Amino acid sequence: MASLNCLPHSLPIVSHSSSTKCLVPGNPKRRRLGLKSSRHSRRQSFALTTRAAVDGVSAVDEVSGAAKYAVDEVTSLGRSPLKLKLLSAVSGLNRGLAATEDDLRKADAAAKELEAAGGPVDLSTDVDKLQGRWKLIYSSAFSSRTLGGSRPGPPLGRFLPITLGQVFQRIDTLSKDFDNIVDLQLGAPWPLPPVEITATLAHKFELIGSARIKIIFDKTTVKTTGSLSQLPPLDIPRIPDGLRPSSNTGRGEFEVTYLDADTRITRGDRDELRVFVIA
């Protein structure tokens, strides 16, 4: 069977051999220089069409899917300078603990630029984009230097010897689990070493509208790490609603204002700006 080596719009010359050759009109030198890259892309399209036919998938769907991927890649590259600008604005701020009023303004302005470039977030048909373990790199509320951020919480480094470590969000879109995971170091009287713990604040979440998330607190699990990692975890159940202070309802809401494969921006119900990267 004759091989198919001809590019579209070329003129076939049929010989008596088992192969089919192509003659491209015009200067041979121009053919070599001008069609080298296009030949590669056309071969890719031909391969996509052939694979689609074998798999029983529409060739149009297959090629359009490849085109969408290419558009997504270009769009992501177009936003890269804005992402770098945001990351530069929040770098060196110790997740916001060291942020000044000027730092807060710069971070907010950089986030708004990226949010505008990305457009509205719609999770109603693709909530799986939230799936994964996300590392917090900035929170505007941490400038208050409390673990509660804009809500009441233990102060950091003032009255209690608490050092904040890494902060993560672990989201499971299938089970609707939404866990805030915080590494802490608690000071101890000399000569005892500091106690390292990981606190997991377990929540359930639900999607409200297209991009707003509602979380409901369930319980806190505290696990010692480091030299005391052999100790079992301790579960602290949720305080009944009747005994809860009015300032701590165990519920919260925030809006996802930007989301791609590795970066997420959220704005909380108390104007808290958070920036996450995939961990």
Rank of each mutant, 00 (worst) to 15 (best):
C6S: 10
L11R: 13
P12F: 03
S18C: 05
T20E: 04
S38P: 07
S41W: 11
S41Y: 09
S41Q: 12
R42S: 06
R42D: 04
R51I: 15
R51W: 12
D55M: 14
S58D: 14
S58Q: 14
K68Y: 13
S80W: 15
S91H: 07
R95T: 06
R95S: 01
A99W: 02
E101C: 05
K106D: 06
D108T: 05
A110H: 03
K112M: 02
A117H: 07
D122N: 15
D128L: 02
D128F: 08
K129R: 14
R133Y: 10
S139G: 12
S139K: 01
S140Y: 00
S143E: 02
G149A: 02
R151C: 04
P152L: 09
G157F: 04
G157I: 11
T163E: 04
L174M: 12
S175E: 11
P194W: 02
F205M: 07
E206H: 10
E206W: 09
I213E: 00
D218G: 10
D218T: 15
T220S: 06
Q230A: 12
P232K: 02
I239H: 03
D241I: 15
L243I: 13
R244S: 13
P245Q: 09
S246H: 12
G250R: 06
G250A: 05
T266M: 00
I278Y: 04
